[in-house]
Amino acid sequence: MNKAALITGLTGQDGSYLAELLISKGYQVFGLVRRTSTSSLERIKHLSGKVKIISGDLLDQSSLMDVIAEAQPDEIYNLASQSYVPLSWTQPALTAEYTALGVSRLLESIRRCKSDARLYQASSSEVFGQPDSSPQTELTAFRPRNPYGVAKAYAHWMTVNYRQHYNLYACCGITYTHESPRRGTEFVFRKITNTAAQIKLGLATELKLGNLDAKRDWCYAEDAVYAMWLMLQQNNPDDYVIASGETHSVKELVKCAFEYLGLDWQNHVSVDPEFYRPNENIQLVGCVDKINTQLDWKPQYSFEELVKLMVDYDLKRLKDSGTLPIPC
């Protein structure tokens, strides 16, 4: 009999890629979607008829129990959260409700309704905040420095505690920044590739950014979701860092994207303090030794390949949209 999987956050970047992966492996896939959600189904429209959508909400434990009872999943992937760091400063309570307490409700629902289900909980490198060592490992102390990171730290430790206290198969994947063409343009990687493509096509002239020296550990979302799946296929549950293992600055990203398009980035990029993050984290880089050794996982896309993939996508999307300026 084929396995069944439940994905929360189905309509997001990771949820859509994960659904594709699980379908390719023969899973029956269920997706939890809030009935009142304004989230676009654009990322999963190509999966119509292949995924069963079930209404539920991380704010409502009874709905979570109903969803689990209906789907009877072998595996549960909790990817839903308020995940935009700047928004967590303006909506800290809402971030805590979904990203922290929502996980408590889900864990308790699993314990009561399907205790043999395997859970993947999406943790985040933001739990490390300003770490005292680099690269960070699964044992690095948590020092979150924004409301999103605080909420993710709570969710992470609740998952670990339920694993230890109730013997649930529950894993946390500490994911670093991962990108794809399905990433929103409010995130810096996609903002850069999208605006660079606009400039190349004459649709824009300037790109405003914050701290060009800020560094990130970036990898491809398809690589990340494969790691999530691998974690639930092991004999015993454990937590893993999911990252590329290397950092690149925003300036490197800008230079790579603009040079690929044959543009001089210095003619188009300006720094605007409005886009600086409070408590900017500039030294987050994951150690991938454990996941590489134990799960034989490593990213398939290099940083440069990912930049080119994203630029190519945005160029094609803009050309296909029919919004190009009419030549004089």
Rank of each mutant, 00 (worst) to 15 (best):
R216K: 10
A224R: 01
I199R: 09
C219M: 13
Q233T: 13
L209N: 04
P237C: 13
V188E: 06
A197Y: 09
L230P: 08
D213G: 06
S244I: 01
A196V: 00
G202F: 11
K208F: 11
A243Q: 02
I199M: 01
E206D: 12
E222N: 07
V250L: 04
S244T: 03
A204K: 13
F189E: 00
C219Q: 15
I192E: 11
L230V: 03
Y240R: 08
K200Q: 03
W218Y: 15
C219I: 11
L212A: 06
N211L: 08
L232N: 14
Q233D: 08
S249L: 01
Y220H: 10
D217G: 00
A243W: 01
V241P: 00
L232C: 12
L230E: 07
G202M: 11
L212T: 06
K208H: 14
T195Y: 06
K208T: 08
H248D: 04
L212S: 05
K200Y: 13
N194D: 14
I192G: 05
C219F: 14
D217E: 09
D239K: 06
T205Q: 13
N211G: 04
Y240P: 07
D239S: 12
V188W: 14
Q233C: 12
W218V: 07
I192K: 06
E246I: 05
D217S: 02
R190G: 01
H248C: 10
T205F: 10
E206S: 11
V241S: 09
F189L: 01
I199V: 10
V250M: 06
D213W: 00
M231W: 05
S244Y: 09
Y240D: 04
T195I: 11
T247F: 02
A221C: 10
V250F: 05
K208S: 14
H248T: 05
V241F: 08
N235H: 13
W229F: 14
A214N: 07
S249M: 00
D217H: 03
Q233E: 14
Q234A: 14
A214H: 04
G202R: 10
G245K: 04
L230T: 01
G245S: 03
I199G: 13
I192D: 05
N194Q: 15
Q198I: 11
N236W: 04
A197Q: 08
N235K: 11
A227K: 02
N235G: 15
L212P: 06
N236K: 15
D213V: 00
I242A: 05
Y240Q: 10
S244Q: 08
M231Y: 03
D223W: 05
T247R: 07
P237D: 08
T193G: 04
K191Y: 12
K215R: 15
M231F: 03
G210Y: 03
K208D: 01
N211C: 09
L207M: 09
N211E: 05
T205E: 15
I192C: 04
N211V: 07
I199H: 12
P237F: 08
L203T: 04
H248S: 11
D213F: 02
Y240H: 00
L232T: 15
L203D: 08
Y226I: 15
Q198N: 05
P237S: 14
G245H: 05
G210T: 03
E246W: 04
A224F: 05
Y226N: 10
K215M: 03
E222H: 07
F189I: 00
L201A: 12
H248P: 00
Y220Q: 06
T205M: 06
T247Q: 12
L230G: 04
G245R: 00
R216H: 02
D217I: 01
W229Y: 14
A221Y: 05
P237W: 09
L201C: 09
L203E: 01
